[in-house]
């Protein structure tokens, strides 16, 4: 299970980093979202992976570390708010700057129809 978990987190991170480095705001926002998913998975696993263990001491011999679960909840909430903000910002910059490039100074040359939509 560890290997599957690690590979999933790795692929998510790689995709996130790749998309974050793109030149347009939409892929960047998607990239940041993927990155935050990967981070949440990573945080969740930081206390070690336990199967069939409740986060309660005393009910079972095996119990999961409750702290990462609490932390990942916080991280999810914050990440969610940040993503919402980033999307609004991307739309705002598209409207204000007339381009969805992250630098805001190039016009949309690739697809002129985008402007009308």
């Amino acid at each position: 299970m560890e290997a599957l978990y690690a590979i999933t987190t790795g692929i998510l991170t790689a995709s996130g980093v790749y998309l974050t480095l793109r030149g347009r705001t939409f892929p960047v926002v998607v990239g940041l979202t993927l990155l935050s998913y990967a981070v949440n998975l990573f945080l969740f696993s930081m206390g070690g992976l336990t199967t069939h263990g409740a986060a309660l001491v005393g009910t079972n011999d095996q119990y999961a570390d409750p702290l990462p679960q609490a932390l990942v909840l916080t991280a999810i909430v914050i990440g969610f708010a940040m993503t919402a903000f980033a999307i609004i910002l991307a739309m705002r910059s598209r409207g204000d700057l007339g381009s969805d490039s992250v630098d805001g100074n190039r016009t949309d040359r690739e697809d002129p129809r985008e402007n009308k939509a």
Binding site: T25, L89, S93, D96, L97, V102, G104, N105
Partner: peptide, 12 residues
């Protein structure tokens, strides 16, 4: 807005 996009993305 332009500076904000960079600032926000970097900090995220």
């Amino acid at each position: 807005v332009q500076a904000g996009v960079h600032y926000v993305v970097l900090n995220l």
